[in-house]
Computed example of a mutant assay.
Amino acid sequence: MAPVRIAVVGLGKIARDQHLPAIAANPAFTLVATVSREGDGVPGVPHFQSLDQLLERGPAIDAAALCTPPQVRHELAAMALARGTHLFLEKPPGATLAEVAALQGMAQASGATLFASWHSRFAAGVAPARSWLAGRRIDRVQITWREDVRVWHPGQAWIWEPGGLGVFDPGINALSIATHILPQRFFLKSAVLEFPANRAAPIAADMHFCDTHGAPIHMDLDWRQTGPQTWDIVVETDAGRLTLSNGGAVLALPDRTERDEDREYAGLYAHFAALIRSGQCDVDVTPLQLVADAFLCGRRREVEAFED
């Protein structure tokens, strides 16, 4: 089978750090074009200022990875799906749930694969954590996701605008893991979202969930942590404690600890290739639903202004 001819749309930090190396390492794909309004793209690869320029004048593509901010992604995704192009959506899959649902309908009509990716689900410890938790009684869960926004999102103004999610941009990674590994669905009970006085998106959130069996789930998100960063999920069960740390890369169980190298994006692209071969889509919006519920039902608290 010939490699899938793929274009990367949006050449920000995540595209250069993760998507381009993962594509280069996967023989199922060949990078044939890049799209970005800024910069010159990748040496030796045709580069375009817009997706419509690529689709009209560029090399033929079978698939595209959309790595743009979520606020502008729907128009680009619709343009590609109208031509039957397979789509890999960087997380979150869109700025709203309704637009993602619309894209699902377009993908079904066109026969194209639509993959709403959640990279943290492909961290090394996540699959074994899900297996270990299956069938166990969950007593309580603590999610702590604290990092320094100046390190991970320097100068990215879009992330502070409506649809940019603010601290939920990393927080949705934790929710993508929790919704995948916990055996019962869970829902929001209460939330307090802290908004800097000069920003339209939150910098911190304190959230309380409950699963369908009554187990409490607490989530602590903060973008103001300096020094060592914290990406931990602790699950207390009838068989002892499970801890996922380092964003899911390290799994600690009552009788052992497992750790492995970073392979999130390698796993994502392997999955995307399999979806294309089988003619399937994978669009799970559950993490985005929980974030939407936080904005819908959470209390807003104004805090001091934040400057990069």
Rank of each mutant, 00 (worst) to 15 (best):
R5Q: 12
V8N: 09
G10T: 10
Q18G: 09
A25F: 07
A25L: 08
P27V: 11
P27K: 07
T30P: 06
T34H: 11
T34M: 12
V35T: 11
S36E: 14
P43Q: 07
G44M: 05
P46S: 00
H47D: 05
Q49K: 10
Q49L: 07
S50Y: 03
S50P: 03
D62A: 07
A64F: 06
C67P: 05
R83N: 01
G84F: 03
E90I: 06
K91N: 10
A95D: 11
T96R: 15
L97D: 15
L97Q: 13
E99Y: 10
A116G: 15
R121V: 10
A123D: 10
G125A: 12
A127S: 14
P128E: 10
R130S: 14
R137G: 00
V141D: 04
Q142W: 02
W152A: 09
H153S: 10
H153G: 04
H153L: 12
Q156M: 15
Q156F: 13
E161I: 07
G164H: 05
G164Y: 05
D169I: 03
G171M: 01
G171S: 02
I172W: 00
I177M: 08
T179Q: 05
I181H: 05
L182E: 02
R185Q: 12
F186V: 03
S190N: 09
S190Q: 13
A191P: 08
E194K: 08
A197L: 05
A201Y: 00
I203Q: 09
A204F: 05
A204T: 04
C210F: 00
C210I: 07
H213F: 03
G214K: 07
D220K: 07
G227P: 02
Q229D: 01
I233C: 01
V234W: 00
V235E: 00
G240I: 02
L244R: 11
S245I: 03
V250Y: 08
A252K: 09
R259E: 14
R259N: 13
Y265D: 07
C281A: 14
D284L: 12
V291G: 08
F295K: 09
D308V: 10
D308C: 09
